[in-house]
Design a protein around this nucleic acid. Structure first.
Lengths: 219, 219
DNA sequence: ACAATTCGGTTGTTTTTACAACAGAAAGGA
DNA sequence: TCCTTTCTGTTGTAAAAACAACCGAATTGT
């Protein structure tokens, strides 16, 4: 697990905490590590969690397949991001989504009780982590609201514009790379893939944007 | 502000804290109170917040109007619920939504820094509140994901079923009262009001449900 | 009680989407 | 390299939603 300490150091959860302290906290927080091959499930819908999990290698999708097989991608988890935190509280009930590795991935689990209960021992930085946890959850929250913003748009075109322009803002560039192929983007925006593909090409023909694979340029 | 202490006591934020302690914390957390008439704005899009706010009287909508006047209702805040917490962190940026009173309302503001920074003085219950804050944010998070679940449905009918059946589950009854009129429900689910009204009547004629005003019975 | 406004339902038209089926290109594996 | 699979774009059709316009009922304010 030692090898991932430099990565943990750069996460929101451990912002402001040194590598030495993180190393010490790994024990205090009962950290456990696990790896998953592309396509494997980290968590499944219906499971009960009691840990906060941080991705240190690879990439994950938080998604949900409904009864008819329609997939909805809720969120993408990149390296350094945490997940599962919303289901780690005592009365939060079962997980409503699947968490699946979209490439070979490694995660580290932290016991949530141990994070929230400030220990009396050496971990001075514990309270920083609690604050960080709050900030990270705030951010996740805002991200979800932004996604609601995209999905509240009535047409596929508007959804695309809403998503791509926000992504351009976030990546601070007119040319962006998205973490989706076409099917995944459609599942993320909850639209039909072929209709979306069609709309994208129309937008390209109208000179609104250019794209090649998952690289888009807004004009 | 004293008169609202019994209400605060029943909130998620102050769960497990006695009235005496709450009373003491009001000062410690620099609580401030304000009231709004129906239709008035508590916060506006673009504002910067640094407090967590709890509704103690009335009802609020978290909503957003886009460029063309399409309204999207993100969330409903009932008595005892908190809001604004996702925008109270230092780097969270400006508020993306409006918060508007849908009836005469009263709120109490708490300075977020003071909540997160455990004071050395008498407030023993401070750390409980920090935990509560985490749990409350978790819950809000799950609520947003549930809303994404409704909005990810492709048809108006599916959106309605998704929303109403979740609400029936939450209210633990086949007969539920929703906090929306037709226009608001449409804005909440991001569909056209007349089309939705039409669909509701079709569903009623098919024997799927019954309704009268904002009271629905699922069959 | 009356006038004005809001609310909910209805209908017809236009636009958009979902769905299905297919084909060429690209990627991946043996 | 060849074969297989995945990915993306294209087209046509059927279904659904948005939009607009309207009406009667209910509600609100004076």
């Amino acid at each position: 697990m030692k090898k991932y300490i430099p990565i943990l150091r750069r996460t929101k959860l451990f912002a402001g905490v040194g590598e030495g302290e993180i190393s010490a906290m790994l024990g205090c927080l009962q950290a456990k590590q696990d790896s998953y091959k592309k396509g494997e499930y980290v968590f499944r819908q219906g499971e009960y969690l009691n840990n906060i999990t941080v991705l240190v290698e690879g990439s994950l999708h938080i998604q949900r397949d409904d009864y008819w097989g329609n997939r909805s991608i809720i969120n993408v988890i990149g390296i350094g991001e945490m997940f599962g935190e919303a289901y780690a509280a005592p009365d939060s009930g079962a997980l409503l989504n699947d968490v699946v590795a979209v490439e070979d991935s490694t995660v580290i689990f932290f016991d949530v009780k141990r994070i929230l209960t400030v220990c009396s021992s050496a971990c001075k930085f514990h309270s920083i982590v609690v604050q960080n946890l709050f900030f990270a959850m705030s951010e996740k929250n805002r991200k979800l609201v932004q996604k609601l913003g995209h999905m509240s748009k009535r047409s596929t075109r508007e959804k695309l514009i809403s998503y791509l322009s926000e992504e351009a803002k976030r990546q601070n560039s007119g040319t962006i790379t998205i973490p989706f192929n076409r099917q995944q983007l459609a599942d993320f925006l909850s639209v039909d893939r072929s209709a979306m593909s069609n709309e994208l090409c129309k937008m390209r023909d109208e000179g609104l944007l250019m794209f090649e694979k998952n690289k888009f340029t807004l004009l």
